[in-house]
Design a binder for these strands. Structure first.
Length: 379
RNA sequence: GGAUGAAUAGCUCAACGGCAGAGCACUGGCUUGUUAAGCCAAUGGUUGAAAGUUCGAAUCUUUCUUCAUCCG
């Protein structure tokens, strides 16, 4: 049982892209990697067997706020942690609930002490402090757990962004103090990643990245991006942060993103991604394929009996037709949600796997520049 | 053959003498550390047909057509 290890295997010559390997007590993760989001201990519409066999996921997410409300800590503790509870025995990363400070802005109040959330389920109030969020994530049992941060909206004015960043830094200190004074719960090692904030201000991002790096954690995350800012701005601050975060530790860009966002960010030095886009958009009829984007609701697919995507090595994508998947989604059949989700996730995992292959081969940048226009086009 | 009722958007129905509407379907778009199998928008009409009453008719009257139910 050991702390997370990151082996940097190949660094691209023409960009900052890297191919690496993360080792955790629940197994290895080849980077760059995309991590499906399983908020309440389930990647919506996709079983753990499908995640492993069809999607070929290597690590999935859980969410502190949502798992704390349901099923609750007593159940998770009695189960022996989330891995045993949900039957996913590869690595798990839990988000801290910091994003819910942003997404549930109408139902919460921020103070120096922490955040009071009003449950979206029953209206009950819950105080989340950095200490409590560490304790909760200890109990959930993720291999990688995230610092409790404030994710400020875009746009934020400079003064708000600075105060927000200072709060996140104060909370980061408290997170590490608590994390370092509490034991692993279930016989394997947990790792705490700090999160860089600073909104869209270069001096704040610089200060925050340096502060995060000073924690000497086993990995670092960049938060507060992909919240509505222009894409070029997202790349700008991603690049800035990557240049300040340690080279020999995995870098995780939280919440990103579109297929091209991911490829561009890999080029900037990001190793880990998560996003609800493949699952949520899939459930809502948007398919990402190796040939471009499909709105499977469109009537033009009604009698298109070609397979969903023959350009990726996924059994479901090579088996079911576009017309059939369209029918399932139109008819609101549960199977439609499952097939669309598995396809989109398999596509994302294929994409980061290809990126990795091309980094190792040494032609990543030209491959990326060729494929992005294809992935963006609307079919 | 007779009686009764019905006919309004693709479907199911509102509006009952004063600007013809909704839900669903269809079409298009949105979704970035999931409050989202969600949200938004745009289409869509000689109110079954014809005549009449009226300042004004989907609405009242008459005839016809079609459908439903019941009775022979």
């Amino acid at each position: 049982m050991a702390i997370l290890q990151f082996d940097l295997q190949t660094t691209d010559i023409q960009s900052s892209a890297r191919a690496g390997k993360i080792t955790t007590d629940h197994g290895e993760i080849l980077t760059p990697i995309f991590m499906p989001v399983g908020t309440v201990g389930s990647v919506k519409a996709v079983s753990q067997q499908q995640l492993s066999q069809d999607v070929k996921a290597q690590v999935i997410l859980g969410n502190t706020y949502h798992l704390y409300l349901r099923p609750g800590l007593e159940t998770l503790e009695a189960a022996g942690g989330l891995h045993k509870f949900n039957g996913w025995h590869q690595p798990i990363l839990t988000d801290s609930g910091g994003y819910q400070v942003f997404s549930l802005a109408a139902n919460r109040k921020i103070t120096q002490e922490g955040v009071v959330f009003q449950s979206h389920i029953d209206g009950s109030k819950h105080l989340f402090t950095p200490e409590k969020v560490m304790d909760i994530q200890r109990t959930i049992g993720g291999d990688i757990i995230m610092a409790f941060d404030e994710c400020p909206p875009y746009p934020s004015d400079y003064n708000y962004a600075k105060k927000s960043m200072q709060l996140t830094h104060d909370w980061l200190n408290r997170c590490f103090t608590r994390f370092n004074s509490t034991p692993d719960r279930y016989g394997y090692t947990q790792n705490l990643f700090p999160i860089v904030q600073g909104s869209t201000f270069a001096d704040l991002r610089t200060a925050s990245a340096e502060f995060a790096a000073s924690k000497n954690a086993t990995g670092n995350a960049i938060g507060g991006l992909s919240v509505g800012e222009p894409e070029e701005m997202m790349y700008e601050y991603t690049a800035l942060c990557c240049n300040l975060l340690p080279v020999n530790k995995p870098r995780y860009l939280m919440g990103v993103g579109t297929p091209w966002n991911i490829l561009e960010s890999i080029a900037l030095g990001i190793d880990m991604f998560d996003c609800v886009m493949p699952t949520r958009n899939g459930r809502n009829a948007m398919l990402f394929t190796s040939k471009g984007i499909i709105n499977i609701d469109n009537k033009k697919w009604e009698k298109d009996f070609s397979v969903i995507d023959d350009g990726i090595p996924n059994e479901l994508s090579n088996y079911y037709s576009k017309a059939y998947l369209r029918h399932l989604l139109k008819a609101k059949e549960i199977l439609g949600l499952t097939i669309a989700s598995i396809h989109n996730l398999a596509f994302y995992l294929w994409l980061v796997g290809e990126a990795r292959n091309h980094i190792v081969q040494g032609d990543f940048v030209s491959w990326k520049n060729n494929i992005i226009p294809v992935l963006k086009q609307r079919l």
